[in-house]
Write a protein that binds this DNA or RNA. Structure first.
Length: 234
DNA sequence: CGCCAGGCCGTGT
DNA sequence: ACACGGCATGGC
């Protein structure tokens, strides 16, 4: 007879992804957006509701500033005014200027050239920018530049904690522990499809997190509350 | 009204 | 190394 064995955390997380993908369907985050618009969204959505980001992006669109040239040409004060709806303007406006300044100075003002940089070096360069932490760097890498990197967030942390996938550390190791877990969950897939899986998985964690894993509520009716702990084989 | 949002950074211990 | 508060605004 086959002995039941515990599923590794990464296998449980993969099952959660498959379960969520079937239940919620494709999220098509940033499906047909121009890559630079994705970059703008990645900055503007930091600790900010997406509806507010859409208002800022609409302002930028009306000002013809959804492009590298547009952001470069905007006076800082004007940029601050346009992105006001999504908040943190004293941080986000200079941060966007700094991103364009980096493109101009080091990458021929080209996102394609930026994207051609090897993933590890590119991630380090993004992290060195003001206003870019691990999640924004990885969101840009994955959603704007097409690199196969996982994007972690607090929703994934809550899922991992409440479903006891791993012991989630605090502090600086927190993000990397969740990203590593996600990497292991999709390690068996071919590289080019990993990008698609990371893309979809991050969007799904946000959706399920918003619906069921709020800070002040437990997982009532959580779609992840199925028995994922044991299996006869894997 | 209070809580939260697709985080990051400076400061204090 | 980690905890904590500020950053700005708007939706629900």
């Amino acid at each position: 007879m086959r002995r039941l064995h515990r599923l590794e955390p990464e296998h449980r997380l993969r099952r959660m992804h498959d379960h969520l993908a079937e239940a919620y369907g494709p999220q098509h985050w940033w499906p047909a957006e121009a890559p630079f618009e994705v970059v703008l969204g990645a900055y503007l959505t930091q600790n900010t509701a997406w509806i507010a980001v859409e208002r800022s992006l609409a302002n930028l669109r009306a000002a013809g500033a959804l492009t590298i040239e547009g952001i470069r040409a905007l006076p800082l004060g004007e940029l601050r005014r346009l992105i006001q709806p999504s908040g943190f303007i004293t941080r986000k406006a200079p941060a966007l200027k700094a991103f364009v300044a980096m493109l101009d100075a080091e990458f021929g003002s080209s996102l394609d050239i930026l994207a051609a940089t090897p993933t590890a070096a590119l991630r380090r360069r993004l992290l060195a920018l003001p206003g870019v932490g691990p999640e924004t760097a990885d969101a840009i890498l994955l959603y704007a530049l097409g690199h196969p990197v996982p994007v972690a967030d607090e929703y994934l942390a809550r899922i991992a904690e409440r479903h006891r996938l791993i012991e989630v550390p605090n502090g600086s190791r927190r993000y990397d522990a969740l990203a590593d877990l996600t990497r292991r969950a999709f390690a068996a897939d071919p590289t080019q499809s990993q990008a698609r899986l990371f893309n979809e998985f991050h969007a799904l964690t946000v959706v399920v997190g918003k619906a069921h894993c709020r800070r002040t509520a437990l997982c009532e009716g959580c779609p992840l509350a199925v028995d994922l702990r044991f299996a006869s084989s894997f």
